[in-house]
Amino acid sequence: MYPDFTLEDSLSGIIAGVDEAGRGPLAGPVVSAAVVFFDRNVVIDGINDSKKLTVRSREFLYNKIISIAKYGIGISSVEEINLYNILVATKLSMKRALTNLNIELDYVLVDGNQPPTVKWQVKPIVNGDNLSISIAAASIIAKVTRDQLMQTLHYQYPKYNWYKNKGYGTKEHINAINYYGITEHHRKNFAPNSLNTIGQKHY
């Protein structure tokens, strides 16, 4: 079963779907996206939770979505994740994504149960990226955007193979951290065993 516009159609006005990518990795920023479909009669086949899609499908759908929908991107840096925590940083990125839409909204549909505090009416939707097309589209925009950022960072620090693992805690990534130490792009308050306790070399 694919997400649809049932949630959006149950409300009135201009509705944005919001989701994030990158809460779990050991390195890199957290990225959120907000998406508004003004014309819900336009069908893009295959929109789904980004985690259920292949890389090729995500990139194809990303290009389709940005061609017909209004979207905003919000990023919280590793410095903000280290200074606050990942939950606070995620909410910051969501607020920035909504601000960057530059649209007055009537409702905001947010994936999960811990939405940001914004001036619009917010409906948190658990499993929202499997229910709402707007949220699922936001998950695709956020994921593709973050993957592109990590691929760019990969060329600065190729030893960690972020091009492939996108900063997640794969075995090869953890082995690289143990061998080379951490970079300024690593989240110092994250596992494994807190990156603060792992070699402090900067490669």
Rank of each mutant, 00 (worst) to 15 (best):
K166M: 15
H185F: 12
V78Y: 06
F60C: 10
Y2D: 13
L61S: 12
N85Y: 09
E59Q: 10
L195C: 09
N161W: 12
N127G: 07
V144A: 04
N161F: 08
G181H: 01
N178G: 00
P192E: 06
N196C: 12
L92Q: 05
G22H: 14
Y107F: 11
N178S: 11
I140F: 00
P192Q: 01
P25Y: 07
A16L: 09
V78L: 06
V30Y: 11
N63Y: 07
A21P: 07
I140P: 00
Y203I: 14
S77C: 09
Q156R: 05
V144Y: 00
M94Q: 10
L101M: 08
G199K: 15
D147Y: 04
G72A: 10
N196E: 14
Q114E: 15
F37D: 08
V110M: 04
L105K: 04
L61I: 12
L61C: 08
K51D: 00
I47R: 00
L83E: 15
V118N: 11
A33W: 11
Y2G: 05
K119S: 15
N113K: 05
V108F: 11
P115Q: 15
I86H: 12
E104V: 04
P192M: 05
E20R: 02
N127V: 01
G72P: 10
Y84S: 05
Y203K: 11
V126H: 00
D39P: 13
T99M: 04
Y107D: 08
F37R: 01
N82L: 08
S194R: 06
P115T: 13
A97P: 11
R40K: 14
K164S: 06
I81V: 08
N189A: 03
Y2N: 13
K95H: 09
G167F: 02
I47Y: 01
K119V: 15
L131W: 00
Y71V: 04
N113Y: 02
V30R: 01
V36L: 08
N175F: 14
Y71I: 05
N189E: 04
T90V: 06
K51I: 01
A137D: 00
T183M: 04
R96V: 12
P158I: 06
G28P: 15
T6Q: 14
K52C: 02
S77M: 09
I14S: 10
N130R: 08
K171A: 07
L105M: 03
Y203M: 13
V108H: 11
Q200R: 10
K95N: 15
T90D: 10
P29T: 03
I68V: 11
N85P: 07
L26E: 12
T183Y: 05
G72H: 10
G13A: 03
H185W: 14
N178A: 06
W120C: 09
Y168D: 03
V35D: 15
P3S: 00
V55A: 07
G169D: 05
S12H: 13
K51T: 01
N85D: 15
S67I: 06
A138C: 02
I135T: 00
I133M: 08
D39G: 04
I198L: 15
R146D: 06
P116T: 02
A33L: 14
V42Q: 12
N196D: 13
Y157R: 12
R96I: 15
K143P: 01
Q156K: 12
K201V: 10
A33H: 14
K143D: 01
R40L: 03
D39A: 06
F5V: 10
I66W: 05
N63Q: 14
Y157V: 09
M150K: 08
I81A: 09
D19N: 09
S134I: 07
